[in-house]
């Protein structure tokens, strides 16, 4: 009963107009030139991975193949980091990525991820490059607001996420508090999507930085301004929409292995560790910063379209 988004017509027809496809191709071309000018190597990455990406809240598709299960990448992070560990130098890719159960105006189970890594850089330096690329692709000036995760909650939801008590948190959430009762991380996530994110990136680019240590994913930790341990991680928003997630990458293989092990234990979807990725991390990831960008969202923003479906030749409902 759900209506396929896109121009009206039979479901075999494309979701995007020809003009949208032409402009998308131009954005891909400009992205390619951006990295070529900066000496970053374009690479292709495999789509059938031996092991699963293990990012909190991100579910991979598992495929049963002769010879054992394979996993569709939720981002091209693993093969890109293996290349870095092998001495590739700076690399980028525009690769298909897959996330089970993510579907909406800003989500599709299949999408394109733009991801790149810069050797010897930290997250701050990479953030500037991200905004430079976004400005050049969308035509919006590279004006950037940098806001700590904590400050964003204080300013837009009126609470300090580190110290707020459960009652106050429930009051801020309102009617929906019951669905996140007893799960503080989920409660803060709900405040973030409902109360904080809509205010980010209005009329400029906003970067959220200094994420709490629990949300460090594969970023290294550092001591933040207020003495708390924070993740060297940023996300970039425009018009309330999250576009990019970047890290000063964690290179400590033992610490990374323990984070991935904890994530795997919390799951029941039949995920397996990506052993070759783990071996590469043990061999040594060089000091680097990396970022992943939802490319369809970037196209949506540049073309002023209302959904990612309209940026793709064939959106999920018409695949």
């Amino acid at each position: 009963m759900s209506e396929a988004p896109g121009p009206h017509g039979e479901a075999w027809r494309p979701s995007a107009t020809r003009e949208a496809l032409r402009q998308r191709a131009e954005l891909v071309e400009r992205t390619r030139r951006f990295f070529a000018d900066r000496g970053v190597l374009e690479v292709d990455t495999p789509v059938l991975q031996g092991g699963a990406n293990l990012d909190s809240g991100v579910l991979p598709f598992r495929l049963e193949l002769p010879g054992g299960p394979r996993f569709l990448p939720t981002s091209p992070e693993h093969p890109l980091k293996r290349l870095l560990a092998a001495g590739s130098g700076d690399v980028w890719t525009l690769a298909p990525a897959f996330r089970s159960q993510e579907l909406g105006r800003l989500h599709s189970p299949e999408f394109r991820m733009l991801e790149w890594y810069r050797l010897g850089w930290d997250d701050t330096r990479l953030l500037d490059e991200v905004v430079a690329l976004f400005a050049s692709l969308t035509g919006a000036p590279a004006q950037l607001e940098v806001l700590s995760w904590r400050e964003a909650f204080r300013r837009h939801a009126g609470i300090d996420p580190h110290s707020v008590d459960d009652q106050t948190l429930a009051r801020v959430i309102g009617d929906d508090a019951a669905i996140v009762a007893g799960d503080r991380r989920a409660a803060l996530d709900l405040v973030q999507v409902a109360r904080v994110e809509p205010h980010l990136g209005i009329g400029r680019w906003t970067a959220l930085v200094d994420y709490p240590a629990e949300a460090s994913a594969q970023a290294r930790l550092r001591t933040g301004e207020d003495g708390l341990q924070v993740a060297a991680r940023f996300e970039v928003y425009r018009d309330g929409i999250e576009l990019a997630n970047g890290y000063h990458e964690l290179t400590d293989a033992a610490e990374l292995a323990s984070r991935l092990e904890a994530e795997l234990r919390s799951r029941s979807g039949g995920e397996l560790h990506d052993q070759r990725f783990a071996e590469a991390m043990r061999a040594g990831l060089p000091d680097c910063a990396g970022v992943a960008v939802g490319f369809d969202r970037l196209v949506m923003l540049a073309l002023r379209l209302p959904s990612v479906a309209l940026t793709r030749a064939f959106a999920w409902e018409r695949q």
């Binding site: 809240g57 993510e102 996140v180 999250e242």
Partner: peptide
Amino acid sequence: VNYVKPGKGNAF
């Protein structure tokens, strides 16, 4: 229906 989630977190 609107699917929302912070980058790496709980989906709603």
